[in-house]
Design a protein around this nucleic acid. Structure first.
Length: 98
DNA sequence: GGTATGACCATAC
DNA sequence: GGTATGGCCATAC
């Protein structure tokens, strides 16, 4: 079940990502006790569009945008923050948030 | 309660 | 750099 505490902790971790940096689903899951990458993805999917949560800063472990309907919008929001993409559409390792 | 699906990851090849 | 496999666990039906 989606325990509210865990969901809130996921939101807290995501909210702590600095602007211009990104992190991966696995990292968020590891920082959240009892969570798995799938749950992080589910949590993001459930978010309303106008959410203040910086969901765009969560990317897949290969440093690409996850494959979902809002991916183009996510890429635009990241670029607007100053996140750069290389020719292969990957985010530089230096932008990863530990 | 079983089965299928999903904004995933680590590992092996 | 790719594909395949197993694991993870909440949701939907």
């Amino acid at each position: 079940m989606a325990r509210p505490e865990m969901l809130e902790q996921i939101y807290t971790v995501v909210a702590q990502i600095p602007p211009g940096r990104v992190t991966t689903y696995g990292r968020v899951a590891k920082m959240t006790e009892g969570a798995t990458p799938r749950m992080v993805g589910s949590a993001m999917r459930k978010l309303p569009d106008g959410s203040a949560l910086p969901w765009q800063r969560v990317v897949s472990a290969s440093r690409r945008l996850a494959d979902h309907g809002g991916a183009p919008r996510q890429r635009e929001r990241l670029v607007a923050e100053g996140v750069t993409f290389d020719a292969a559409g990957r985010i530089p390792v230096t932008l990863l948030w530990p």
